[in-house]
Design a protein around this nucleic acid. Structure first.
Lengths: 248, 248
DNA sequence: ATTAACTGTTTATAAAATACGCAGATTGGA
DNA sequence: TCCAATCTGCGTATTTTATAAACAGTTAAT
């Protein structure tokens, strides 16, 4: 009657046991499979995560995996959620600014610790349970903020998205080979960029302060700038919202 | 003597002709190859972009491509930069807020128009010439803003990163199958989320306003919220910066 | 007990990237 | 002019993928 449920992904994400229990007890579990994939990615990078290698690690034939996972893409989605388990135990004594900053920073740190996270195809917006728990923590930090839930969610999305970009930058900086002459943005500019082609960029860059060594920055957290920018924006939005409520 | 230059990527990105010209005239060009890949991605999605198919489109054997492109990853990087050519002709009569908003929106629209853009492995932070031209436009919009170049660059990075996230959401919303019962975040919550496991999230969601039909939102631009948040943050940062300068 | 549903497996296919080496073209220098 | 260096494009072959299809054993509902 109803055509086959288009996706069992979500039940699998949430570890729901499929109702009918008829055949033999499964020797494998989704969690086991995902864990094996996790270890492989950790040790040899995401590219090394193939169905065959996961199967070997878990001690079964490659095709056995398909009984528990629709295909490789789904495995990667499960893996992405699994990774959110590695986010640290939070400090609960923070008001929203500090809390959100820590929340953000923890995500960056996770990606730096596990750079293969950034290689995951992160198309899926729908979070699994682990990611959702992390979102729940975000809501905790926003507990005293007077905003509708949907706006809080949007804010957390923006902050998380920023964390992703920041992580990308930091990972790239960590990997950057000092022998590579084009490692940095500035070097690329002086080598290739024609002032006539990029006039405004070059004009602004002409006044570049080439980070005196030792003085690096006010803080040693490279995400400090973006962080304060976001927090300022959020604070402004909150005030505007309160104003509007009061006027009513 | 010196071991082979680790990467010819950047010369290729910038279309620099390799100095020595001895052998036969190339029948293929990098631009041609990238263009073919672009068309295939456009018509059949990024997954359809294989070396073989690109070769066929361009009328050569698969292996011929490797004379012009180090490997597939490099082709995709070139493709990503090529895509930035499709960004629209900008309106130059905007002050920074409007300008940056348009700058951001154009990126979202591009990704919505060409959803396969989001499938690209976007690890590379170093922009090619087309992306750089777009960054130059960002600097144009910030022309009257009194901030150091590095902070302007960071701001553009943050805005672009936000655009990416927003695009992901909008693309997913556009693709979401109305038959799929778990399409939306809220539906997933009511189906799976245990209030004990996600207390703060659920408490906040309890007061969810389920978007009365027809009233959707104040504006019909779904990125309006994030946009105003970011602009507020940037404005606050600018003011703080001016204050600090004045005090000196 | 029979049967339906479920497990893991075996075998096979198809598509993918890309290493390797050849043949012909082109050009700079003798 | 001729030769050698150098570069192009190509044919062949290898390796690694994901995954389809059919099968044999296992369990629980009937």
């Amino acid at each position: 009657m109803m055509d086959a449920m288009s996706s069992d992904l979500i039940p699998r994400l949430w570890g729901k046991p499929p109702a009918g229990r008829r055949g033999p007890k499964p020797a494998l579990s989704v969690a086991q499979i995902v864990e094996a994939a996790y270890v492989i990615a950790d040790e040899q990078g995401l590219a090394a995560v193939s169905m065959a290698r996961v199967a070997e690690a878990v001690g079964c034939s490659p095709m056995a995996l398909y009984r528990h996972v629709k295909n490789k893409d789904e495995l990667l989605i499960l893996l992405a959620d699994r990774l959110c388990n590695d986010l640290p135990e939070p400090d609960r004594d923070l008001e929203w600014r500090e809390g959100l900053a820590a929340w953000m920073r923890a995500q960056v740190d996770l990606a730096v610790r596990k750079p293969w996270f950034l290689d995951l195809p992160i198309a899926a917006t729908l979070p699994g349970p682990n990611r959702l728990a992390w979102i729940d923590l975000g809501f905790y930090y926003l507990r005293d903020v007077a905003l509708p839930a949907e706006e809080k969610l949007a804010i957390l999305g923006i902050v998380a998205q920023y964390a992703l970009g920041e992580a990308k930058i930091e990972v790239e900086a960590a990997l950057s080979d000092p022998d590579n002459p084009y490692a940095s943005f500035e070097e690329m500019l002086v080598t290739y960029a024609d002032p006539e082609r990029f006039p405004h960029l070059m004009a602004s860059m002409a006044t570049w302060q080439p980070a005196a060594p030792g003085e690096e920055s006010d803080s040693d957290d490279p995400s400090a700038f973006g962080q304060s920018l976001l927090m300022a924006g959020i604070a402004a939005h909150i005030e505007r919202h309160i104003e509007r409520s009061d006027r009513k």
